Simulated scan of single mutants.
Amino acid sequence: MLQFSKYQGLGNDFLLLDGRSLEDSEELFGLTPERVQRLCDRRFGVGGDGVILALPPREGGELRMRIFNADGSEPEMCGNGIRCLARFLADSDGDVAPRRWEVETLAGRIVPALADDGRIRVDMGAPFLTPETIPTALDVGVEGLPVGVLEVLGQPLAVAAAGMGNPHAVVPVDDVAAIDLDTLGAALEVHEAFPARTNVHFVEVIAPDHLVMRVWERGAGPTLACGTGACATLVACHLLGLANRQARLDLPGGPLEIDWDEVSGHVFMTGPAEAVFDGVVAPSLFGLGDERPAAAATPLVETDPSPAQASLDCATVCINGCLRPEACASADARARVTALLEGLSLDDLVALAGESLESRTRGRLSRDEPAVP
């Protein structure tokens, strides 16, 4: 039984799965690109812009985050996603402000914090402004970041590139509402100037402290908001001389406050994240009966694994069969998971999931009740 919670940040919605207490959580979840696509399908599945896993840490953080786009691809990070993760953690654990989390991501360690007003303020770290770190084929201009004019579907676009652990193309325009986002965004995402593809943001400057933007998200298409994109857009617009270091950025789903701190060089993002509902996925969604899901043929794998990695990540690379049967690192964990599942009936699993969902919902309602004077 796959238990989830759905959260949204400015309309950018995600399915949250909690695997922090499970040693073999990624194997137990049984996710594949095809199953992520099915979950995120808004007609045949639950619906969402992506799936987020909360996992045990590997590098000294409090937890590790993996995120998958609606198409099954795995991006390095997501600003709206990590705000949703922080709100989900607070709701699940009963945390109140001030509370911060050290979260390991493919873009490095990111630190979201719960503010007194319920919003999430995230230290997104310093932006990446060199071609090799974004990555992009654009050259660094006098502005201090990669810039250039790219031909997209026969139309010249003045593009600036910045990274927030993932790549972003920022295109200032006079009228953001007039842009054909579906056509130009899709074409610029896969432009040869961005070898890892890119998120695309068209931005209109209302004032130095007020920008309006529209988002084409890599692997997801048009979305109502993009946290890392808002950060990259503010950085790019400031270096281009169009914006202050602190500004409100209006996205289709609502506003974010972005602050590029001059002292630390870090970018801070502040915005909302809200619970939508909790649920349990029916096995039939994946074409399964009541039995435990079998290993899939195309597992999700970690992005850019190091060739010098001393040990295998058995939760991903060994899902179709153990590559080191003589010294399997996860044999004990797999045995415990198997014993747990074999010892519980489907009714038992449904009951456990229901109790957990009820507990989380009661905690959330208690948090939202006004204090008695």
Rank of each mutant, 00 (worst) to 15 (best):
D182V: 05
D182A: 15
D182P: 01
D182Y: 07
T183L: 15
L184S: 12
G185L: 00
G185C: 01
A187W: 04
A187P: 11
A187Y: 13
E189C: 05
H191M: 07
H191R: 10
E192V: 15
E192A: 15
A193I: 11
A196W: 08
R197Q: 14
V200G: 09
H201M: 14
F202M: 12
V203D: 03
E204C: 09
E204W: 10
E204L: 03
V205A: 07
I206L: 15
I206C: 10
I206D: 13
P208F: 08
P208M: 09
H210R: 15
L211R: 05
V212Q: 14
V212A: 14
M213N: 06
R214I: 09
R214H: 11
R214L: 09
R214F: 10
V215A: 00
V215P: 03
V215W: 00
E217G: 02
E217S: 02
R218I: 03
G219T: 02
G219F: 04
A220K: 00
G221Y: 00
G221P: 04
L224W: 10
L224F: 13
L224R: 15
A225L: 06
C226W: 10
T228M: 02
G229T: 09
G229N: 07
A230N: 12
A230L: 01
C231D: 01
C231I: 11
T233D: 12
L234Y: 10
L234V: 14
V235E: 07
A236H: 11
A236Q: 11
A236K: 10
C237R: 08
